[in-house]
Amino acid sequence: MKETLRFGFILGIICIVAAGLLAGVDILTKPKILAQEKLEEELSLRAIFPSAHHFDEVRDGEKVIYYKIFSSDGKFIGVAFNTSGKGYAGEIKTLVGMLSDGKITAIKVTSQSETPGLGSRIAETNFTERFQGKSDLSGVEAITGATISSRAVIDSVKKKAEEIRLRVENDR
């Protein structure tokens, strides 16, 4: 009994010191990590919407549903949104830019863990440019040898694009 208490006490001290240390590191790195995420988000948005001047987040509670994109003269030109689908080796996340008439401007694969050299080719421009200017995505061709990964991207973009189109109509 006494042994058990002593062991618990020692382990407790180790855990408290570890927790304190981690809390300190978290406080130090948090603003930096948030800034990095913000920067990355902004760079991604600019990459899929080169004509964008500024963005507005449309939120539902904490979550960002989509971004409204405005040109330099303040005109609403389109939206951008994140979508994800299940690929061959895990989740594939894609950022999509869509003009107000429903045409895709560009897509960017932001995170994927597909087979290097095969499925990972979905992140290359050779594949992503197939979406450009399309509003009906059933015409987008999959990459030979990487059908599952390609379909995951195509289907997830298609599904979310329809959802967002309806939402934008309602929000107007």
Binding site: I10, L11, I14, A18, L22, V25, T29, I33
Partner: peptide
């Protein structure tokens, strides 16, 4: 368990540091 707590602490420090910098 003590070793795991100690190792996990340094791994988390390392992870946060990499994410930030």
């Amino acid at each position: 368990p003590s070793y795991i707590v100690i190792i996990a602490t340094f791994v988390t420090i390392c992870e946060l540091g990499l994410k930030a910098y």
